[in-house]
Deep mutational scan, measured.
Amino acid sequence: DAEELIELVERALKEGREIILLGVRITSEEAGKWFIEWIRRFL
């Protein structure tokens, strides 16, 4: 579910982890915020 995915992304970014989803590397909080917004819009 989308909320679970958002929580995972937020937690990983807070822990300083690198996330790779759909071939996109997300390493900064700014990118994470963009990704979370995208999830909310399309899922």
Rank of each mutant, 00 (worst) to 15 (best):
D1E: 09
E37I: 10
I19G: 02
L43P: 00
E4T: 14
L43F: 12
I6H: 04
V24W: 06
G32H: 07
D1Q: 14
A2K: 08
I39T: 00
S28T: 09
L5Q: 00
I26P: 03
I26C: 15
R40I: 13
I26S: 03
E18S: 12
E3G: 11
I6L: 11
E30P: 08
D1L: 15
G23M: 13
S28C: 07
L43N: 01
W38L: 10
I36N: 02
E7G: 13
K33E: 08
E3I: 12
A2N: 06
G16N: 09
F35P: 00
F42A: 03
R17T: 07
A12V: 11
R25H: 11
E15A: 10
I6G: 02
W38C: 10
R17G: 04
W38A: 03
E37M: 05
R40Q: 07
A2E: 07
R40F: 14
E3D: 11
L13V: 08
G16P: 03
K14Q: 09
R41T: 08
A31L: 15
E18R: 09
L22Q: 05
A31F: 14
W34S: 06
L43W: 10
A12D: 02
L43M: 12
W38Q: 02
F35D: 01
W38P: 00
V24S: 01
V9L: 09
E30L: 14
E7K: 14
L8T: 04
S28Q: 03
R25P: 03
S28V: 11
T27D: 12
L8G: 03
R40L: 13
A31H: 09
E7N: 13
G32I: 15
L43T: 03
F35M: 05
G23I: 13
E18V: 13
E15R: 04
L5F: 10
R11D: 04
R17Y: 13
F35R: 01
K33C: 12
R41C: 14
I19C: 15
L13P: 01
L13K: 04
E37C: 14
I36T: 02
D1H: 14
A31S: 08
I6A: 05
W34M: 10
E4Q: 13
G16Q: 07
E18H: 11
A31T: 11
R41S: 11
I36D: 06
L21I: 11
R40G: 04
E4C: 15
I20Q: 01
A12L: 13
I19M: 03
E7C: 14
E30R: 10
R25Y: 10
R17A: 09
L8S: 02
F42I: 12
K33H: 06
L22C: 15
K33I: 09
L22P: 01
R40Y: 11
W34Y: 05
W34V: 04
R41F: 14
I19A: 03
T27V: 14
L43Y: 09
L8E: 05
E29A: 12
R40N: 08
I36P: 04
A12N: 03
E3R: 15
E3N: 10
I26M: 06
D1W: 15
I6Q: 03
R17I: 14
E18P: 08
I19Q: 01
R11M: 04
G32T: 09
L21K: 03
L43D: 01
L21N: 04
A31R: 07
E37H: 05
W38M: 07
L13E: 02
S28H: 04
G16M: 15
A12R: 03
G16S: 08
K33F: 06
A2V: 14
I20G: 00
E18D: 06
I6R: 05
L5V: 04
G16V: 14
G23V: 14
F42S: 04
E15Q: 04
E10M: 10
L8V: 03
F42N: 02
S28F: 11
F35Q: 00
F35A: 01
L8D: 01
A2F: 15
L21G: 01
E37K: 06
D1F: 15
S28A: 10
K14G: 07
L13D: 02
G23D: 07
W34C: 06
E18F: 12
L43V: 06
G23Y: 11
W38S: 01
E10W: 13
I36F: 07
E3Q: 13
W38R: 00
I19P: 00
I36A: 06
V9G: 00
A12S: 05
E29T: 13
W34G: 03
E10F: 06
W34F: 05
L13T: 04
L43A: 05
T27N: 13
G23C: 07
G16H: 07
S28W: 14
L22S: 04
L5E: 02
W38Y: 05
I20V: 10
E15N: 09
R11S: 04
R11F: 01
E37N: 07
L5K: 01
E37Y: 10
T27A: 13
L21Q: 02
E37A: 11
I26V: 05
F42H: 06
R41N: 11
F42D: 00
E10C: 15
R41M: 13
I6W: 15
I26T: 09
L5M: 09
F35E: 01
R17S: 05
E7P: 02
G16Y: 12
R11I: 08
V9W: 02
E7H: 12
V24M: 06
L13N: 01
R11Q: 07
K33V: 04
R41Y: 13
T27Y: 11
A31M: 14
E7L: 12
I26H: 03
L5P: 00
G16A: 14
E7M: 11
I20R: 01
R25N: 08
F42W: 14
G23E: 08
I39Y: 05
W38T: 02
T27E: 05
V24E: 01
V24K: 01
A2R: 07
L22K: 03
L21W: 07
L5G: 01
R25I: 12
L21H: 03
E18Q: 10
T27I: 14
I36M: 04
I39C: 01
V9T: 02
K33Y: 10
R11P: 04
R40C: 13
I26L: 05
W34E: 06
V9E: 01
E15M: 05
